[in-house]
Amino acid sequence: MPPPIKLFAGNPNKASSSSNTNKSPKPPAALPSNFSQSQAKKAVDALLAHNVKESAKKEEEELLPREEQVWLVVNTKHGNTRKSLKPVKIQLPHPPLPPPPTTSICLLVKSPQREYKDLLANNSIKFMSRVVGVEKLKGKFKPFEARRQLMRDHEVFLCDERIVPLMPKLLGKMFFEAKKQPIPVNLQRKDLKAELGRAISSTYFHPTTGTSSSIRISTPSASTSSETLSNLLAAIPSVVAQIQGEWENVLSIGIKTSTSVMLPIWSSKLSGRFAPSSSNGEKGDVEMVEEPKQKKKKEEEEEVVAPATAATTPAKKTAAKKTLGAEKDTPKKKSSTIGSGSVAKRAKQTATGGSKLKSKSK
């Protein structure tokens, strides 16, 4: 395997403000006073130890086991009302993914794609695994199976920021469900290599309308426990700053891998749910006392129900049957309206008789 490619000559985290293709990110929200870094360290150590055991099992059972990543999970009390296709770039002390060629990278560009392949060659950029144009996405990768294979072949997808609105329709929801949304980059920068390098070495927060967000912070096979912890402590304030309401809207924070359960790091207080009932501040169970008005209502309801049940006795049943029989024996009154049968027949006979008398007189 070739050695990893060095993307930066200096510090990769020292990025200029002009290199950010998205809106200027909000300043990080300070950690609350009840946030415990020791609890975060315990969670990171336990998760990495669990991943070592699981990876050993996968090597025995699977031919090519899938690489796991560590994800920061932020659960909120209320969903976000704004949704954007452009993710928010978050700089970390250490890259969350191994450098190329260990990590396969695909660049999505405008047509013709040959123009952008020549652009990468002129800038001595050799860490791109594939360049795909819009015409290829509409043609060769239009079938579902071809798009799914493209998603499996590459870990990171970079996209020209000018064609970001076309990506949901061309790629489909499978890329977004697999957390492989294309990352927008500006291919018109003078220092194109640094622009693409910063995009690869950063993590991203994708604004959604749901109540849970996952942000990749490290890869266990390429990061140590201290590097994962430093990435975690750097990512939490930046992610919370992008949430509406910030810490007041955060319900819980944890970390997990793709196949593990979430290990909790921080959770909000349940304030106001178990307030003391008495004025002097004493806590305890509240005894439910029935009020006299409620007792009177229950007694009245019982009195109403009692005669109704008594009516079901045999004597009452026979009396009810007799009254029903008497109603059946009484003859029904004939209708005395103009439209009844007898009145209509009489009117017809008088009409025909009158016409015959007129004919005889003639």
Rank of each mutant, 00 (worst) to 15 (best):
S16A: 12
A234N: 02
E145R: 11
D329G: 09
N13T: 15
V240Y: 02
S214P: 04
P93K: 04
K317P: 06
L171K: 00
G354D: 10
P96N: 03
T228Q: 00
L137E: 04
D329P: 05
P2E: 07
H206V: 13
T350R: 13
Q181H: 11
T208K: 13
E195T: 14
P276K: 05
S104D: 07
A43D: 02
N231F: 00
A56F: 07
S212F: 06
T313R: 10
V74G: 01
G139M: 06
S36D: 05
W247G: 00
G245F: 06
K89F: 09
P237R: 04
N13A: 11
I217L: 02
P314W: 13
S355E: 11
A43S: 08
S355L: 15
K328I: 14
F8T: 05
I200K: 06
K332Y: 10
L63S: 13
P237A: 06
S111I: 03
S361R: 12
M151A: 06
K356R: 06
S278F: 12
E195I: 09
L232N: 03
K295Q: 10
K57I: 07
S226L: 04
S55G: 04
S19I: 13
R147N: 05
R346N: 06
V261S: 09
Y116F: 15
K360V: 15
K193N: 09
K190V: 09
V185I: 15
K58Q: 14
E291V: 13
R148A: 12
Q113W: 07
S213F: 15
A235Y: 00
Q294H: 08
T76H: 04
A234V: 01
